[in-house]
Amino acid sequence: MNGLVQTALEAATAVLLLCGAVFCLLGGVGLVRFPDTVTRLQAAAKAQNLGLLLILIGAALRVPLPYAGLLLLIAVFQLITVPVLGQIVGRIAYRTGAVERHTLTVDELAERLAPPDAPDAGESGGGRGRGT
């Protein structure tokens, strides 16, 4: 019985490691193939981190319990920090002109950044989004 559980855990680890590596590879392909900074950020922040999470979970199934806890802690840190980095890089890309705005279908930030006396800007706009 114990041997069966061991075999099942090893099989699950192998599947998770391979799936994670494939998702990491897809993230890398997206980073090379996508046309501008924000779409590359998409590949970076989603595919790559899904791959990393799968690999960390696969590793956590194999190692002793304290190390498994540390690996899951890495996963939690990753889940906290990646959205923050994505937010910061995306905003800076927009504000420094790395985003080609005419390619955007919806551009809600432009309405918020527009001066309050502009004809198409609502009262809710001015001030928000200008902060650091």
Binding site: L17, L31, Q48, L56, A59, R62
Partner: peptide
């Protein structure tokens, strides 16, 4: 753009972490 390079460095670090996690899983 510099931001592309920053994103690439972040992904490179993530890839290194993933590779080391594979080593942790396979070779204890």
């Amino acid at each position: 753009h510099a931001l592309d390079r920053i994103v690439a460095v972040e992904i490179l670090v993530t890839t290194v972490v993933a590779g080391a996690a594979v080593a942790v899983a396979v070779w204890d």
